[in-house]
Write a protein that binds this DNA or RNA. Sequence first.
RNA 1: GCACCCAUAGCUCAGCUGGAUAGAGCGCUGCCCUCCGAAGGCAGAGGCCGUAGGUUCGAAUCCUACUGGGUGCACCA
Length: 580
Amino acid sequence: MNLFAEMRAVVIAALETMSTEGTLPKGLDLSNVTVEPPRDPAHGDMATNAAMVLAKPAGLKPRDIADKLSHALMAEPRIDLAEVAGPGFINMRLAASVWGMVAHDALKQGRDFGRAALGHGIKVNVEYVSANPTGPMHVGHTRGAVFGDALASLLDFAGYDVTREYYINDGGAQVDVLARSAYERYREANGLEPEIREGLYPGDYLIPVGAALKEKYGDSLIDKPESEWLADLRVFSTEKMMDLIRDDLALLGVEMDVFYSEKSLYGTGRIEAALKRLDDLGLVYRGTLEPPKGKLPDDWEEREQTLFKSTQFGDDQDRPVKKSDGSWTYFAPDIAYHWTKVERGFDQLIDVFGADHGGYVKRMKAAVSALSENRVSLDVKLIQLVKLFKNGEPFKMSKRAGTFVTLRDVVEQAGADVTRFHMLTRKNDAPLDFDFAKVLEQSKDNPVFYVQYAHARVCSVLRKSGEAGWDMSDARLAQADISHLHPAQLPLAKKIAEWPRLVEIAARANEPHRIAFFLYDLASELHTLWNRGNDDHSLRFIQDDNEAASASRIALARAATVVISAGLGILGVTPAEEMR
RNA sequence: GCACCCAUAGCUCAGCUGGAUAGAGCGCUGCCCUCCGAAGGCAGAGGCCGUAGGUUCGAAUCCUACUGGGUGCACCA
């Protein structure tokens, strides 16, 4: 039940009646008519811009439309008052009983309250993390993982058919480096001195891989030329790295539906097929690129290449798909990979990239537009850096100095819930500070704690009333009479009513951080109401010796925590029953 | 040189895909527990929404140009 959508329908119906009665011209475009909460609660519960939006196309004055529309709206039983204000807004005050009905609805539906039909089962593919399989995940990956996962959950909640996908970059030269690095650890496992040359991966995490290689191959690969072991070791060590990454993701509570291997595209004709498709569309040609303006790279030379005409789709430059030696560039398998997404029937694609890959967005969008002939849209969400702090001091990460902070480090220190919530308290394209001391702080300037505390407080009330022998189950609370809310309870009830609307807004924008901010506001309303109980005991949730009165108060509080719980669920955070 | 992202209170950031007098936390000032969890709440002070134009009934939000910061820029993924 989305109250705002329902009231918009009431407004639209009134407008259509006005059209048929001749008060308004027929055939007006009503799509810009909105019903939303006014900034100032004194203006009422909801406001519509209908009169202002329609004034020009209808050839009427906003006030005239507004006067008639407000009269028509007064016929709606859920509207107590509709009045014209300002330049032509219509402010609506809703019947008090409406808010109780929303809370009641939340109790009945539980965590499904707010689940939207926005997506209509549209198939969405969310690709995130996609970290190179060359080592454990670090903090930078963590934010992308949390974001992508929360976004996927959000879209699912909004009614989309979501697939969570990880693209394994196991086809490129970095995997050769991995295999060689693992080979040195293998020699080490056989009692030889490893030669971790410049450019190899020095990390300790490859030591167990070396040991596993010894177990599998004994000493049979020692002193053999690279050509005899490289291919095998590529496969072996990539698998080990993916095990590592899967474990890291599990620590965070991230579970993928699909792991798609880049390597699996090679040798199967898939890359060729994707490129042929572009070629058939007349989008591939042999040519040379203009040298970049400004300072030239030292080794610039003009050369003829196989190019994809991405400029036709808004890119700044056509992009090479083949290297001069005839092998594919990294872009070619990416094109093929996205082509598989189109072929697999997805209607919308979302890629979650690090902000340093921003330059890659246009060509990827161009490729998807071209391959799908504009049927499938690609939205790329760029994730800004995480700045680590320790005790307020910026913390520099350095592989050499051994101060490389992994996902595991973060989750083991801060916990998955805290990490996840905190990473969603910033918009994805804004840099994020992560201070180990601050995220663990238990005060209201830590949103994680603040929201959890609100939830825990209500749980505490439920426990207490249970000890009094009362049945305060959700089923029982859904029967409670909450039709006559106290004015002090209204702000909380109204916030609860906003939840379904917020889900749609957040899903439309692909912005899960909005959920986190909403939960903070909701928690704030709950804390406020709680404290009102200090001044006015009749507002306390537990009314001694009066089960019915308690139930009606607790019902509202519980409805709030149902929403908190649903919201935290989208963020992948467990609601706290109590704070320790 | 070009493209993309960002610019909002002293600090860190929201701002509902164009709405009314721009919000929150921190910090500062003053209040509120014999009483459901004060790990909270209330009140006050604090703003030319980077600058200049444009679009319109209406702009922090959309467009253009500047200024300042970040990222990226042919055969690396």
